[in-house]
Each structure stands twice: as structure tokens, then as C-alpha cells.
Amino acid sequence: MSGVLALLGGPRSAALHLGLIAVLAVLQFVLAEYHHIAMSRILVLACFAIGFNIAFGYTGLLSLGHALFFGAGMYGAGLAAQFLAVAGPGAFLIGLAAAIATTLIAGAIALRTAGVSFMIVTLMFAQAGYLTVYYFGAYTRGDEGFVVDATMRTLFGLALNDATVRYWIALALFAVCLVGALAVARSGLGRVLVAIRENEERARMLGYDVYRYKLTALVISGAMAGAAGAAYGLLFGYVGASFASIQYSILPLLWVLMGGAGVVLGPFLGTLAMFYLIDLTSGVTTAYLLVVGLALIALILFFPKGILGTLREKLGARGASWLP
């Protein structure tokens, strides 16, 4: 029991994170239809953001190419379902494997650089991935995308186009990613990652193989992004090139910055807040990306630590015990 508690970051943190999952499980019976669907989307996208946070928040690797991993998961799963007639669980695993393989290759090369070069290399890899989707337009149908056949969107006999099933699966995936991130953050691995973020040279001097740790962090990050992409494609039944575009590399960055980089709950809060912020303003203007731009600048100027990062700092030692 104490092992599980330690994994979850102590009693307070365990209560907070498990409590959130419980609240989300109950919430679906209260939410109106529109918000019910929105919430399942947010939960899947939050997994993407949680993955991004492992690289950016904990390891200090600012990637501008996570759409590549999200897209690899989505296209891996979507194309498997569409052309190989592999149903739900198999397609998901193929997507996940595609994302892990992509991250491993792209990461192994990109991590030879650091700082601004790393950002541009990841950006370029993601751009090449995006263009590849167009290049194979005969299968992917480029920008237009394709609808995944409903008969392939099943999981152990459950139809994925049912809203309740979808919510439960999204929540299950979210729970796995959240607890996984918590476990990583609290583990020895997580502490080394933070040490690398804070001072890479010092970590190297202490004898850590920095490159290998960074690659490990990136692969965990890419796997979560890919899982989110695969789940998104299968749950909502649509696979399109826009999900591999640069915008989907920027969005997780925005979500994590808003919620709080390096806080396990940050990505979820950021995704939730940003989703409803855009939702509210899209009633006023169609130029919703304006909100994205304003939010990015406001955050970087006034709240570089995000909502939960600022809160944790204010709370001091107590904050650290609630919000690892």
C-alpha cells in the first residue's frame, strides 16, 4: 500500500489525482450532451498534453514537432483500420507502435542538438511528416482526410461511436496517462530528468548518461502523444492532415504553458481552460486563433509558470505535496 502511495506522490497528491479521476467519472452523468462530447475530446487531448509535459515540463526539451508523434499514432491506427481491416484494440496498438518508432528515430537524431536547434529540427521533422501525408494523398486523402469505417471502430465488442463508451475509454486512457506521469515524476527517472532540465552539465558530471535519459523522456512523451492520436482517430472516427500540421505542435505547448509546465495536473487544466476559452470566443469571432496568439504572449509575459505552477509556488512546501 505504501508503495502505491509513494508512486502517487504521497497521500495528498494521491487524494487529489484519484479524486479528479473519480469526479470526472461521475461528471459524465451530469453533463449536457454538448459538454459530454467536449469532455471526451478534452480528456484525449489532455493525454497529448501530458505527454508533451514530460518532455517540456520535466526534461526541458521544447519540441515544436509533437504533431509528428500525435499524427503517427493517428495515421498508424487510422490506416490500419481502413486498409488492413484491423479493429479497435489492434489498430490502437499499431498506432502506438508507429508513434514510438517515429519518436525513437526522430528523437535519436534531434537530440544530437539542443536549445534553438532542437526546436527547429523537431519543427522540420514534423513539417516533413505533414508533407508526407500529402505525398501519399492516394491513401491519406491529404487535407480532406478520411472517415474511419464504423465497423472497425470497436473495442472488445463495444461500439466506439456510442457517447458513453467513448467517454469511459477516454477517461480510462486519461487515467493511465495521468497516473503514469505521476509515477514518472515521482520516480528516480523523473528526478534525473528534472536535474537535466535544471543543469544539464551538472547531471552529466554526476555520471548520468544525459542523452539516454532525454531519449527515454522523449519516447515516453511521444508514446503518450501517439496514444492520444490513435485514440482520437478511433473514437471520433476522422483522420486528417490538419492533425499533423504545425498547429498541433503549438497547441500542446500552449496547453502545458497555461496549466503549468512541470506540474502533473497542469496539462489537463490547460487543455480544459483553453478549450472553453476558444469555445466561448468562437461565438464572437471566427478568428479563434487570435485567442491562441494572445494567450501565448500573455502567458510568456505574465505567467511563465502557468496556473498551477504559480499556485504551487505560492503554497510553498504544502504546494509541492499536493501538486508534484
Partner: peptide
């Protein structure tokens, strides 16, 4: 350097929109 990239991404969206 990193904050500048994030901020100029913000400018990109603001100008474009």
C-alpha cells in the same frame, strides 16, 4: 531564446488573424 520563440508564435497568430 525559448520564450522568444513562444512569444513570436503568439505574434504570428495575432497578426494573421
Amino acid at each position: 531564446p525559448e520564450a522568444t520563440i513562444v512569444a513570436t508564435i503568439g505574434m504570428l497568430y495575432i497578426i494573421q488573424q
